[in-house]
């Protein structure tokens, strides 16, 4: 497969996201610019300009009408995907590290940083898709304060039933999105190894977490039970579950500031493919010159994109060998 290199950013990527049809890819980086790309040929559709600080996170509504971004300038911005206009700005007291639309698109959560005496919070905002997109609720409908350990990432479970958040101390908690109560909190990763990413499987019944403790775990959304564990040899920044084929893709690498020794195979800046069920590493894709900060998989499972510390997004459309690959047991199952 020949990757498409997207070089629209001048600084390291922070998050990339396909829309629900997979024809558009949104990327954000520390250089304040939000880019929209056609995933098929890597053509840039446009940029969303207006943020004053590093953009940490991006999400697109399920109907691809609105785009939400969270930035270090303490704002969440809502954009008209088609025109690139900013339709709404919400001010927070600290930087916004993660935004996520609910599966129906009617709510948006924003994870804010713990800083300057403010506790980390998860704010829930109502989103409306009327004629006038800028008519949005002014204040969050719910704010969950994380007093123990700040939330770093969060997302919505199936049917928006729970909000699931990953914390700085390596634990995962489940909140009720109506009352804001914490229903459960489980220490799944090593203590004090930050959870760097949470991504849901297409049905949102399970999700995968990536952590600095060099492992990724597949958890059930319902009761936070650990279903699978994927062990790697490098701190992980991102993990994703592939539809169509039973894989998970992990990305990471030694951050430049943490490098103490050099080896022949420097950095380990590769996307790692593990079999979702057998927890077995099946292959790697190299190409980035820095750690992989973010990975997203095409909703149809035909492609994946990775964004790295090197400022590049690489879009890989899988070729036949990927779809043909099967374990012996899987092959037997397919024959039946």
């Amino acid at each position: 497969m020949r990757p498409i290199l997207l070089s629209g950013h001048e600084r390291s990527l922070t998050q990339i996201k396909f829309n629900s049809d997979g024809d558009l890819l949104f990327s954000v980086s520390k250089d304040k610019i939000v880019c929209a790309w056609w995933s098929a040929n890597g053509e840039r559709l446009g940029t969303y300009n207006g943020h004053q600080g590093a953009v940490w996170t991006v999400d697109v509504s399920p109907n691809t009408i609105l785009l939400a971004t969270g930035s270090a300038d303490n704002t969440v911005r809502l954009w008209n995907v088609k025109t690139g206009e900013c339709v709404k700005v919400w001010e927070f007291s600290t930087a916004v590290k993660r935004v996520s639309f609910s599966p129906d698109g009617n709510r948006l959560l924003a994870v804010t940083e713990k800083r300057m005496g403010f506790n980390g919070t998860i704010a829930v905002l109502d989103i409306s898709y009327g004629e006038n997109l800028s008519a949005q609720a002014a204040e969050p409908t719910l704010t969950i304060v994380c007093e123990e350990s700040k939330a770093t990432v969060a997302g919505w479970s199936f049917l928006s039933k729970y909000i699931i958040a990953g914390h700085e101390d390596g634990s995962v908690s489940q909140y009720d999105p109506k009352s804001g109560d914490q229903l459960e909190n489980v220490q799944i990763h090593e203590f004090d190894s930050q959870i760097t990413d949470i991504q849901f499987a297409p049905d949102r019944l399970s999700f995968i977490t990536a952590s600095k403790d060099k492992s990724a775990k597949l958890l059930s959304s319902r009761n936070l039970a650990i279903l699978k564990t994927y062990i790697s040899d490098t701190p992980l920044n991102t993990a994703s579950v592939t539809p169509k084929k039973e894989f998970v893709i992990l990305g990471g690498g030694q951050a430049a500031m943490d490098v103490t020794t050099t080896s022949a195979r420097q950095g380990k800046f590769e996307a790692r493919f593990y079999h979702k069920v057998f927890e077995d590493e099946c292959g790697r894709v190299r190409g980035h010159f820095g750690p992989l900060n973010t990975i997203d998989v095409h909703p149809a499972g035909t492609a994946y994109a990775s964004g790295g510390e090197d400022g590049y997004v690489r879009v890989h459309h899988f070729d036949k060998s990927y779809f043909d690959f099967m374990y012996e047991v899987e092959r037997e199952q397919a024959r039946k």
């Binding site: 990757p3 498409i4 997207l6 629209g8 077995d280 894709v285 190409g287």
Partner: peptide, 18 residues
Amino acid sequence: DTTSVGENIIFRPSVNWK
């Protein structure tokens, strides 16, 4: 200036990759 095509990557998943 924003889009280019990288060199071909041979990616074949295998059972005993490790």
